[in-house]
Design a protein around this nucleic acid. Structure first.
Lengths: 333, 333
DNA sequence: TTGTACGCGTTATCAT
DNA sequence: ATGATAACGCGTACAA
């Protein structure tokens, strides 16, 4: 293995002091332009790259951030991760990726791990830990962006980034109503999901606004994947055969619901309208193409990282940001 | 922000020397069991976690590895990344995730970045750099697992991990032949892709083995996504209307081809059989469900990380590992 | 403009 | 069994 050249190596080769090299490399004043160029050329020739570990120890800055997601395999988080990494790359930061697999223990271990790695900031998706734990953890990191979770008291070095779930659900229901649908069901996500809860509230609000009755028979919970969506839709349609519209917690569930309709001989969108949430790539692959609440996930990732950079830089950020979903009307509703 | 306790803090609190604490924490001999327990309890109470940055500087080990992928959004790499992260987590390692976006410049910058971060090992997917660059890069890291790329001369601290593409393609073609298909087309991946090349060779070999003629009209190149697969299949079927089977470079392309068939009124599998590659989740979501060459991607990620750990630990590894794909016969062929 | 001394938190080495 | 000291590579503060 190649030995990594150090500042001292460059200094020797250039016959100057280590500090002069350091100044030259870091573009700091105190070196004649001529000498700087000379040193830079030499450093380049020797393939010098500063050791971020040593630099981190000296400066307390590691130029790396942590990204915690439930599962990077889920297209929702994959897109976000991609946005985060892109923005981080543009600013010279590296990203530690950690999966929690929805396991609170693993989540806490992830936080410990990132803390030990001395990350400059943290992007934390769908935190499952308790409110007390959350507060403790937030105080361990210089800057935190919380995705998909809310914060009671504002903190100067933390902010939240959420999709406007309530409005999204309302848009969907309003669309159904506008097309004359009256028996609108909702396939909800898991009960612990904040998004699921907010979407449910939006669904209620929209039904009420349209003078439609709330009917708990029209609600079904499921794990947010296709198979579970299929099962839930099957149960729902068996229980309430008169359902003419289904709002799904997300696109995966929506696709499952669509398959359930097909299995039961219900045509989409003629007999039943279906609307999903998120607009993952699958939404346009499936036939009929899915009408869904589009959220620019990669953009969310980028915004999260940008905001994190701002906070790390001492810029004050809004305590909470809300991302507006947009209804993309395609073929399923 | 909370101040992170250091070894010195614990030492003070325990009224012993810093080194004694270090030994206690690291389970090294030279501390009486009684004292060790006392120190450990105290460390736990103060919430001590070793600073990996400082430790890294002292030991030249960072307990972090790099993972380079073209795009973590691609389900193929998402699954692999998940496997890598899982295995890393189990062994106390952290993973830097970097996307190259198929851009050789960004790939090289990623390598520099990881080098500066002093990673203990590297898992490198689909390296696009030149053979010379590859050799240089391999010598910068203590251990490297190369996914989807081959190595001319074996190296003690590097190994390759590839899917047996040749055999996979042969299995698919043989399946087609066994079902009486005679005009078997191949929608290939991009020309720079090593996998694409190997699958093409397997396709040739299987046709030859079945005494079927090679016909370049039956080949079409495309970017490995659904849309491009759709276009390619359209062009193919226009050019050769008598095609009765399509082997696709991967599942995304296969799905595109399936949609093209539907658009042209060709029934799958009655008129045309379709086989994909990889078995991503989409394969079982789409209707008809996709017959495809199953590869356990998460497992590949785990094996890659395990092997990397072995190499970092000084264990000699096989220079090359080959993963066998398995034909999962579902509904499309 | 350039150089020297010290500290970051930890481990390795050598003493006691 | 325990402790003092140097070293890892770099940046900050101060000196020349």
């Amino acid at each position: 293995m190649i030995k990594r050249p150090t500042l001292a190596d460059i200094a020797d080769a250039a016959s100057v002091s280590l500090m002069t090299v350091s100044r030259a490399i870091n573009n700091k004043p105190g070196v004649s332009e001529e000498l700087r160029q000379e040193i830079l050329a030499l450093a380049n020739e020797l393939g010098y790259h500063p050791n971020q570990i040593a630099r981190g120890l000296a400066t307390n800055q590691t130029t790396s951030v942590g990204l915690i997601v439930p599962d990077n395999t889920n297209p929702f988080f994959a897109q976000i991760a991609r946005g985060v990494e892109d923005a981080a790359y543009e600013h010279g930061y590296s990203v530690f990726l950690v999966n929690t697999v929805e396991d609170p223990t693993r989540e806490l271990e992830a936080l410990n791990s990132l803390w030990q790695k001395d990350v400059d900031g943290l992007i934390w998706c769908s935190a499952r830990v308790s409110v007390e734990d959350l507060k403790v953890q937030l105080n361990r990191f210089p800057a935190v962006v919380l995705l998909n979770r809310e914060l009671e008291e504002p903190l100067s070095h933390a902010m939240t980034l959420n999709v406007h779930d309530h409005r999204g659900a309302r848009l969907a229901v309003a669309h159904f109503v506008g097309r004359g649908r009256r028996r609108i069901a909702y396939l909800n996500g898991p009960s612990h999901s904040l998004s699921a809860h907010r979407r449910l509230q939006g669904y209620y609000a929209a039904l009420t606004a349209a003078n439609l009755p709330l009917d708990s028979l029209l609600e079904e919970c499921c794990i947010p994947d296709t198979e579970s969506g299929y099962e839930a839709a099957l149960a729902l349609l068996k229980r309430c055969p008169d359902v003419d519209a289904i709002l799904a917690f997300n696109d995966l569930v929506a696709v499952g619901a669509m398959q359930a309709c097909q299995a039961l001989g219900r045509r989409v969108p003629e007999d039943i309208g279906i609307i999903g949430f998120d607009d993952i790539p699958l939404a346009t692959i499936i036939k009929p193409q899915l009408t869904t609440l589009h959220v620019n996930l990669m953009h969310i990732g980028k915004v999260a990282m940008q905001s994190l950079l701002d906070m790390m830089g001492g810029v004050v950020c809004p305590a909470a940001m809300l991302i507006e979903p947009e209804l993309y009307v395609r073929d399923s509703a």
